[in-house]
Design a protein around this nucleic acid. Structure first.
Lengths: 182, 182, 182, 182
DNA sequence: TATGAATGAGTATTCATTCAT
DNA sequence: AATGAATGAATACTCATTCAT
């Protein structure tokens, strides 16, 4: 059913209407509303799924990189979010736009908390002072760069990854060439 | 007329309708449509103005900082964009959201080109390699950090300025404490 | 099954929908529609039951009071209808509203005929001229007063009973104090 | 515009939908909504008008009959309401049904207060004890009888008037033949 | 016989745009 | 040139009813 996320990929937020979703899903509006009480609920569910995927990917990345030092830990998290954004750039972009026009869902807020927590943890474990504030900025940097790259149509994952790594490590005052790619 | 940007500040995007604009502007919708053929045209004009202001501020900043070295030149541009965003955070945010849901206007594209050119120039003049790519990322970083800070309700200009400077100089592999504030 | 009259008590008319009825009755809508062809049929059945109860109560009352004189006979009928209305005021009110928005059902019409006949009989047996017309008005008076009282939230059966008796006997040009309460 | 009350006469409450109103009024729905913000507002306005007419008629009647004695005063009020109901029986009926399914409008409540006050006043001026309670019942009696008569298709104003007068005066323990028609 | 998922016509309401005055 | 009443397509959502399992 959420395969009607296709509409978001193509048309972006404002072209999304319930009849269209139902049509494209091959269902009647009546049926659509048997599963979701509101248009908002449909969107919220879409976002929830997206955030869950992202969250799980980040947890996996953090777990695997645990104890390998600040650079590798942070980089694993960057790679995870980046992979997520590039899997379906248009959809990810559209959902994010919708997300901050919607009343904040508790479950989503929790996921975001946890994701931020992973970054904060990596920083704290490696002796970085004021890890919350730093994490906030690192996330913002990664986000901003991904957004710009996607909007500009850049698709080269490795290239973008390298640039974000450079920005992140630069913000942390670490030379990015002090270690080599996995 | 476009002083009806006030609506965007308060309601953000979805609450914006042409009758409201006309009312608040003290004009009839009839007249509004005599000057602008569509709603999109009104929004495009609003964005155009915003971009013009920003452009002019950046040109001024670039001119004043010219020849003072990479750090100072880049920092002046960062400060200019930041000042712009913080002057009216809600409006800036709303306009940006609208901007990338709208078909790209040629004039606006040109302004953005020019602004990017200012950064490219500063980098090139100071011997930075691949200045276009670097400029692209620096703009994205500043943008992402401003956006996140504003969305989180942070209002402290100096603090945010310091953090963006750190990110930008970090990306350029320059220690941000190698020089002091003006 | 029609115990789903509960919905009418709570929500009154407009909140009544077939799925809700089926749910509350612990049956599937499919089954509901195996017994009743339309929503109207369900409502008609509900009304039929209510009218049957009322009818039977009135017959009992009329039988018991038979031969005790006009006042007592008429009063017994008044008491019966009043008891009926006050047993479940909201439901009675709701059903009556529905009843006169529905095409007149033959069976219900018959019951009403019979009930009116009881009043007519009491009047006729006691030598009242034009008993049909008088009965019509007496029923209308009782009905109107009950309706108003219930709508105003009055719950005191005895008080209301006394007032209706006064109205009815007054209409019959009989002093209501010519006899005392049972 | 409110000439779309025609729909209520023919079809009763549930057949009333905004598109139909607009059609029958020869206007587009858009225009309809320029004058009334909600369907409820349209209905409320219709009711308000009806109540205003009724109110004014009753005030006139009360004024003209003032000081002519209880029977004549009360009778004048009865005649006024009756005239009102018989002017357009179906509409009056429909509006009343709608009225008590709608959140009580302050203005309408005031009018009803005033109308009740006219009856209370007539009773009080003529030395009737507990005039509020008596007025309540008299109104209920008149209402109930009109409703029943209209539902039964009776159109004879004078006949109905005589019967209601008999009921009302009977309730007041006054013989209705103690005075003759004007 | 019972189920309940599916249907889709119908409803109130909004809003960009037009055009007679 | 200015006005603002009028337009009507579009939108989210409801609910009586059907029918394959």
């Amino acid at each position: 059913m959420q395969a009607a996320a296709r509409i978001l990929e193509r048309g972006g937020g404002e072209s999304l209407n319930t009849n269209q979703i139902a049509d494209l899903a091959g269902v009647s509006i009546g049926s659509l509303y048997q599963y979701y009480p509101t248009k908002e609920a449909i969107l919220a569910e879409l976002i929830r799924q997206m955030r869950h995927e992202m969250h799980d990917d980040m947890v996996t990345a953090a777990t695997q990189a645990a104890g390998q030092g600040l650079e590798r830990e942070v980089d694993a998290l960057v790679a995870a979010t980046l992979r997520h954004h590039l899997r379906n750039p248009k959809l990810a972009q559209a959902l994010e736009r919708i997300e901050d026009q919607l009343p904040m869902d508790a479950e989503i807020a929790q996921l975001k908390q946890n994701m931020a927590g992973l970054v904060v943890g990596a920083l704290a474990r490696n002796g970085i002072a004021d890890p919350e504030a730093i994490a906030f900025d690192l996330v913002a940097i990664g986000h901003g760069m991904s957004h710009a790259a996607i909007a500009a149509g850049q698709q080269d994952f490795d290239n973008l990854h390298r640039r974000i790594r450079r920005a992140v490590l630069g913000y942390l005052q670490l030379a990015s060439d002090s270690w080599s790619d996995p």
